[in-house]
Design a protein around this nucleic acid. Sequence first.
RNA 1: GCGCGAUUAGCUCAGUGGUAGAGCAUUCCCUUGACAUGGGAAAGGCCGAAGGUUCGAUCCCUUCAUCGCGCACCA
Length: 826
Amino acid sequence: MSKEIPKQYNASEHEDSIYKMWEASGAFTPEAAKSIGRIAKSRNPKPSALSSKPFCIIMPPPNANGALHIGHAFEVALHDLLVRYHRMRGDKTLWLPGADHAGFETQVVYDKKLEKEGRNRFKIPREELWQEIWNFTQENKKTMEGQLRKLGASCDWSREKFTLDPDIIKTVYATFNQLYVDGLVYRDNRIVNWCTKHQTTLSDLEIKHVERKDPLYYIKYGPVTLATVRLETKFGDTAVAVHPKDKRYKNLIGKEIEIKTLLGLTKIKVIGDKAVDPEFGTGAVKVTPAHDPNDFEMWKRHEQEIPGPKSVIDQYGRMELVSRWPDNPAAKKYHGMKVLEARNAMEKDMQEQGLMNKIDSEYVHSVATCYKCGNIVEPRILPQWYVRMTAPPSAGNHKSQITNHKSLRDIAVEAVRKGEIKIIPKRFEKIFMHWMKNLRDWNISRQIVWGIRIPAWYRSTVPPLRVRGSEEGLRDVHNPPQSSHAFWEGETEIYVGAKPPKGEGWIQDPDVFDTWFSSGQWPFATLGYPHGKDFKEFYPTDVMGPAYEILFFWVARMIMLGLYRTGKIPFKTVFLHGLVRDKDRQKMSKSKGNVIDPLGVADLYGTDAVRMALVSGTAPGNDPTISEEKIKGYRNFANKIWNASRFVLMNLDPLFVIPSEVEESHMMKHGKRMAGQGVRSLTGVRDDIVLSAADKKILKELEAMAKKVTRHLDKFEFHLAGETLYHYFWHTFADKIIEQMKPRLQGETPPNLPSERGGNESLSPPARGGVRGGGSDRLTAQYILYTCLTTSLKLLHPFMPFVTEAVWQQLQHKKKTMLITESWPV
RNA sequence: GCGCGAUUAGCUCAGUGGUAGAGCAUUCCCUUGACAUGGGAAAGGCCGAAGGUUCGAUCCCUUCAUCGCGCACCA
């Protein structure tokens, strides 16, 4: 047999066929637990470590807009590790894979692709564009499935889901409908984050605040001077606000003041609002409700006193003035300019006209930008759908399962506070709470094509307004069905439902859902809520393990929507992992050229090496660092496993020891000996094996190591479990135990004699085939090596599934088994 | 502004209320019958700073410094 085993472990020779073997065997399905349980039971009548309880992980569905990156590989390694461990424990284990259409993210990726091709999404009819992106994602999805297999993901492919599957959409629609009935979603026309590049609104989470240095202008407004950065929005001013108790301005509050602007003389009202900080600037601010969220709120508070919002910037971030001031030459001058362009022009003009007091050019503040393109977000007023986060369902028509009329936020906070949902590492619980505290209503409308279209219908008595454009007319850019601007003013009736109600004139909302609205329902949607068998068996799921960066985007929403819809938490444990960085702690990016393609390195060094390198050396929740050197190190470890196994295999006497019998019999012995105590030990043996005290110590150590690994795994301390195994296997098993057993395997060394390195070969001739006198000790040595090896292989399997299975397949069992469905040793 | 982390060997990181750990890198030795993708040895640290609690602190507490991250309606 020894001659058949090559000296080096060549991962690529084994991985594909092993994966096929696993997949074909049905080992990835929860039903495989039965056979594990049965085998384990036959060996151990009281299998304390085995259960038939369900264990379920829903895979965070990778975005179907590209290939898997190293971060996915990391996540897969962690999940697969957990899944394989629980499967071996005999849990009825389900790992449900999926892929995400990833609405806006994919739209952005596809926009770039179109751009490269010289095309523009706004010029492609909706259905056509949708079909194109559909094909694009289906391609990517196929690629990803292959990559997940390559990474060894032992997920149940028969249950795979896509976020645009009809049953998922049905669930999402039902949730939206229920929320609507409960008054937890509503449509409102208010100020939103608008990306002028992507031509869509963004949720508060999708904007990034960045520090910027901008000029702070002190401008004259009649009797007052006020400070502003956004000079260009002054055309949209509807009031001047001061603090109600500010002595400087007290006498002006409630009065109209006459001001001179670039457009000429006009009047504006002064209001008192305590949101104004008297310490800042001059203590007086302009109120521009159409282009500033604060000012919008301020207007809401003073709706009776001051005029409504005056929009002066269009959807592309250009000044839009002539429709309001058709005959004003100044309006014509700035009209059509980009915001910054207009600001600079106005600065100059105002200085010339003496309207500017001073400019503070050192002013540092933070501005909202689009998290994808980095462009400054332009606040605009648009009708959108919102999820009510902090207020309870409206009384009366309340049909939801939320008890005690609590808000979505409160039910989620409570679940975490009570410990029903545990977040690991714990520090993220604090971060979670902090975020939840500041939560505001969630805009779920997006003006893109790619996504789940909002099931809302409007009927108007007035025909929808055209979008107001520049004087030259609209630059043919606007594809009406893609935008919702037109609707609000014409909406007189709203209907929520997948299909339009009876009657004429109903138009569907052109917008799609924020992708997180639908993926927030992923756990129960994938399991077939409410009647699915899987839902009943596996919900609440056990572990949700995404990157910490989507704690708010996704995890928080899943908790809220899961609780809302099913009345139960969606998962018991949130296990957050970090972002993979290179060895200099740099974030990986294509532009830096430091990306490591997981599949590429897996081809070179083996999937096991990549997985182990990602899992080892980083505490949970921290960002792992990875380098080719590190992967090489674990490639060497895989080779070590291979060669230590090779040695053991070469030294097992085929006539004397049949591995599976040794194994099974020792397990059975234990079962008998330890029955009732609920603990199995590895030191019990067949009657024909005589263990010395030192031998027993080796086995005790093995057992202690196995228990330690198990403890670490149960506490999600994968790095510690991995390190323990690495050290045990290499520096205890290979370096010490094997060396110690070498002389005994030759049948000449009496038991208990400390091993000596065979310095003089001629004095210790090879004794293969067995020397009668030393037979028992030789058998004992084989037994010990065999036990240490098989136990280690089992423990290592969740970390390095391929090499361990490859070795396992070399063990000539009487009954052919697979390591993936073997039972956990302790 | 509010919040959360980090600071340990040259590098990347673990870890513990009681003589400080790994991998890689470095130096030296070993073509030994499982493996040179190997083996043996060596060197390397006031565990960010200052206080406090303690018999004892790298670890717990406070403050500070530096770095990172998250949240945020400061015009």
